[in-house]
């Protein structure tokens, strides 16, 4: 069963799973460790995978379960979480650069503070590039439910920017 096709399925999904793990665990070492574990776990349990379902759906379910248990374990160990930093190239308008940096940091904080289910859907949508239909399949929810959570997440982002009078950033840039 472990053919070249299987290898390519793993390779195809590795980056997306890693990005998801990194955003959820906020630490490179942990993300690498968790992603490796997820791949290993999927690899060892390939025999139990029912091939009528899509491989990536199955893999994402394993990934989410594993990332959550990894993060719980880490909370128990009270391990420090490193903040991811953004590096901006020095070229271009420095004022614009500083302003964009501010906006990105603000957005990063808002995403970090989203309720877990909304954050999960936001990350699957943006960092794993999944459709609402696919996310619904992975989470075993209705497409409407997934879209509602996503809507509330986006609304929260919008309201936070509005509250701080930051919504006119397009004009300021």
């Amino acid at each position: 069963m472990k053919s070249p096709e299987i290898n390519s399925l793993f390779e195809k999904n590795y980056k997306k799973i890693f990005r998801l793990a990194l955003k959820m665990l906020k630490n490179y070492e942990d993300a690498e460790d968790a992603t490796q574990n997820i791949m290993q776990l999927a690899y060892e349990n390939l025999d139990s995978f029912r091939w009528e379902a899509k491989f990536s759906t199955w893999l994402y379910r394993i990934a989410l379960n594993h990332i959550y248990s990894y993060s719980n374990k880490r909370k128990k160990q009270q391990k420090n979480v490193s903040k991811l930093n953004y590096s901006f190239p020095d070229s271009g308008n420095p004022e614009k650069r500083i302003y964009t940096e501010e906006l990105f940091k603000k957005l990063d904080e808002i995403i970090e503070d989203l309720p877990p289910k909304q954050k999960e859907i936001f990350l699957l949508r943006y960092y794993s590039n999944l459709t609402f239909k696919k996310i619904a399949k992975i989470l075993q929810k209705k497409v409407g439910t997934v879209k509602s959570s996503y809507f509330f997440a986006m609304k929260k982002i919008k309201e936070s920017f509005k509250k701080k009078d930051l919504l006119d950033f397009e004009e300021q840039l």
Partner: peptide
């Protein structure tokens, strides 16, 4: 404005991620 900012932020974020080889 929100969707465009989110898109730019995610693109930048993804760009900055150093994904280890698998």
């Amino acid at each position: 404005a929100i969707f465009s900012l989110t898109k730019d932020y995610v693109e930048k974020d993804k760009e900055d991620m150093q994904i280890p080889d698998f």
